[in-house]
């Protein structure tokens, strides 16, 4: 679908049995130490907040939003991928961080028509690799998940 252009450099991570990738240019940082604090609101999108060096970031429960995982049970260690968004920065809770992979642009394919996930508009496409399928996320759309769209 894409014209031959620069290859994608993707940070990959796992949520449940799925592997996702986000363009490394959209990532502010990754963090494996932050402690998740609960928040006094009830949104599916929000897992909590983390205190990142004095800045308090909202943590998105991406797994829950995509319908692939129940909220993390206590004691489970999550890592956080911090992405830039229009309204600041947002952290995405992931189960396991993997490597940075370079994917030639032409390997990014459209989602098959029978691919069904809630909120799948945040997935730009997929890459078929030997080790399995990699879902490539649109970081901006992801960060906006759970926001009531202003009309």
């Amino acid at each position: 679908m894409n014209k031959p252009s620069k290859p994608h450099e993707l940070m990959t991570f796992e949520i449940a049995e799925y592997v996702f990738g986000i363009d490394i240019n959209d990532i502010q940082e990754i963090n494996c130490h932050a402690v998740l604090s609960r928040v006094p609101v009830d949104y599916d999108a929000v897992a909590g907040v983390i205190n990142l060096r004095g800045e308090v970031l909202t943590v998105l429960a991406l797994g829950r939003l995509l319908g692939i995982k129940s909220p993390p049970t206590s004691g489970e260690r999550a890592s956080y991928v911090v992405v830039k968004s229009t309204g600041g920065r947002v952290a995405i809770a992931v189960d396991k961080l993997k490597d940075v992979e370079t994917i030639p642009a032409k390997e990014l394919q459209n989602l098959p028509a029978n691919f069904q996930l809630p909120n799948q508009h945040v997935v730009r496409g997929l890459v078929q690799r030997q080790s399995g399928i990699l879902l490539v996320l649109d970081s901006l759309r992801t960060a906006e998940l759970g926001l009531v769209q202003a009309v």
Partner: peptide, 12 residues
């Protein structure tokens, strides 16, 4: 020290 609440939480 007051920090802004993120867009998501601000909705409440």
């Amino acid at each position: 020290v007051v920090k802004p609440v993120g867009e998501h939480l601000g909705q409440c």
